[in-house]
């Protein structure tokens, strides 16, 4: 399993990987917002956490279609499916998700504080947003894995995956953003939405890979 993780990380970093694509897309979204909204610093600071979350969510969905498709095209997916008795397929999918998250989504979380400066956010709000992104984005990857597994046989399934997955990620977005606001706006709570966010990640960490494994087992042709 560790070998699968390190293989996927290496593939992500080397040529053809999507590690930088997501970050650049994230940067493009966040950098254009102040031009569109105008130079109202207070407004930017207020919408900052929400914009960061939306940008990160969309950037997360960007590379998802390659999660299983690359393995399917070169035949590795067959062997991963056949290895079910040795390594449970759901576990294999979980490892692939974690590797995908560490390779393509973690850079977004690292870039978020820098991009928060573009939005004139306070240090506390930046910290809270980065923390909620760190806890919440794995849930998006786990949901996305289901979409990627269902659409694995479709040659250009990228957009379809985004459309399939986006409605399911809305709860993650809502609790992520409300926890980020809870850290700065005084009457709003931080801990409750944050804990629900963590619970969502853990719940989807089990449900997502299991459902994706089921889809992959029945999707081979």
């Amino acid at each position: 399993m560790l070998s699968l993780f390190s293989r996927d990380i290496r593939l992500n970093i080397r040529a053809g990987g999507g590690a930088l694509t997501g970050v650049i897309f994230f940067l493009a979204v966040i950098a254009t917002i102040p031009f569109g909204v105008g130079p109202d610093l207070k407004l930017l600071a207020r919408i900052g956490p929400a914009i960061l979350w939306i940008g990160a969510l969309l950037a997360c969905l960007l590379g998802l279609d390659r999660l299983f498709q690359a393995d399917r095209e070169d035949g590795s997916l067959d062997l991963l499916v056949l290895g079910h008795d040795r390594h449970m397929l759901a576990l294999t999918v979980l490892v692939k998700c974690v590797a995908h998250w560490a390779g393509s989504v973690l850079p977004l979380v690292v870039a978020a504080p820098l991009l928060g400066l573009f939005m004139n956010m306070e240090p506390l709000a930046i910290g809270a947003t980065a923390l909620t992104l760190l806890v919440g984005t794995p849930a998006i990857t786990f949901i996305g894995a289901v979409g990627a597994a269902v659409a694995v046989a479709l040659p250009r399934g990228g957009l379809l995956i985004s459309v399939l997955v986006l409605p399911l990620t809305i709860p993650v977005l809502i609790f992520g953003v409300s926890a980020s606001y809870g850290a700065t706006a005084n009457p709003d709570p931080f801990l409750q939405p944050f804990l629900i966010l963590a619970a969502l990640t853990m719940f989807l960490g089990v449900l997502g890979p299991t459902a994706a494994a089921l889809a992959l087992r029945h999707g081979t042709d």
Partner: peptide, 10 residues
């Protein structure tokens, strides 16, 4: 199978 199940980047 027909495919070699190897990654070209590695």
């Amino acid at each position: 199978g027909h495919q070699n199940a190897m990654k070209t980047a590695l």
